[in-house]
Design a protein around this nucleic acid. Sequence first.
DNA 1: GTTCGAACAAAATACCAATTTGGTCTATTT
DNA 2: AAATAGACCAAATTGGTATTTTGTTCGAAC
Lengths: 194, 194
Amino acid sequence: MLEDFQKVQAHIVEKAQDLFARFGFRKTTMDEIAQAARKGKSSIYHYFQNKEEIFRAVVEKEANELKKAISQAVARETDPRAQLRAYVLTRMHALKNLANLYSAFRDDYIESYGFIERLRVGYDEFERSVISRILQAGVERGEFVIEDVGLMAYVIVVAFKGLEYPWAVAQDIAKIEENIDTLLHVLFYGLLKR
Amino acid sequence: MLEDFQKVQAHIVEKAQDLFARFGFRKTTMDEIAQAARKGKSSIYHYFQNKEEIFRAVVEKEANELKKAISQAVARETDPRAQLRAYVLTRMHALKNLANLYSAFRDDYIESYGFIERLRVGYDEFERSVISRILQAGVERGEFVIEDVGLMAYVIVVAFKGLEYPWAVAQDIAKIEENIDTLLHVLFYGLLKR
DNA sequence: GTTCGAACAAAATACCAATTTGGTCTATTT
DNA sequence: AAATAGACCAAATTGGTATTTTGTTCGAAC
């Protein structure tokens, strides 16, 4: 029964997700994954081709969860400014809980897996399209003034992505949100007197 | 003669700077430094206490060069907007030529040296004070509207610092400057219609 | 279709001898 | 006195080897 096959796969992915998050990709052994999933080690190979494919499934799962969280948070707002804020905050909060995705995008060793680059490119495109849509909506509502929406979206994505690491290690959530709001304020209003 | 002592020190630092930049701190040996400086290895210890102190001198030299370059570029402008632009561009160009400072701030191994953290803290303060002064001047000229100059300076420094790495590996200078100008534009004017 | 256990090659780890490196010290030279 | 050279040393690194672990395969069993 095909459904059962996918259920077992999902179960293995779930267990592997915890282990990878805790020990990292390299330090987690197939034996540990098998035991956590209550299977024999070689049974795992019935469901996944190799260790890398399991990691791929885990990372794709997390990427989809992040995309979903962002899409839902943005859809919950109608004002483009509130949408931008929702994007930044949701992204920041969610990434803290998606350890494997975060490490996949930062770890030089894991980066050597070809699918990570493809995943990253796809994910970057997703973010740019989210921001582009928000910016475009702002322009159409006559609220934003932007010459090149695509370029602006790219720059904003890069700028916020660049802040991930300082925020990832920071402990003070209130301080981070204060920084975010300061940055969003200058993003909306600029420095120049109106 | 004290002046000669410092001249030899400076000469050693100069040679070490090239070697460290080329081979990295760990891979560069004291023998190589001595040979490049045309001294015996043990003579080097007459001028510097150990390898770390040489590296410290190299990194401090580079930090001072960067500070000088930024200060001069900013002083060459009077308009706060032009000053901000000068800061960003100068910083970006200069860092590419200061390999040791760049690696000192990024390399986990080197980071374990206590003086690097002190140097970084001192350098961060320098940058924040440069930006604060520029912002404050803009406020006093009635051009900028900022509630908390210190906080804004902090956020701007962090935001631009976060973009270092993508720019450090990028090849296309024109593209980078386009991104910088787009970001500066939104920094000055904001997204909202005026 | 699913699982298990044995087997295997590659990778990782542990161990050890040899070499290199950073640093010290004394005697010599300038 | 300042600067240098060379011998020396402990710690670190390197390279080689033996051992163990790991990811994977395969055929048999359920």
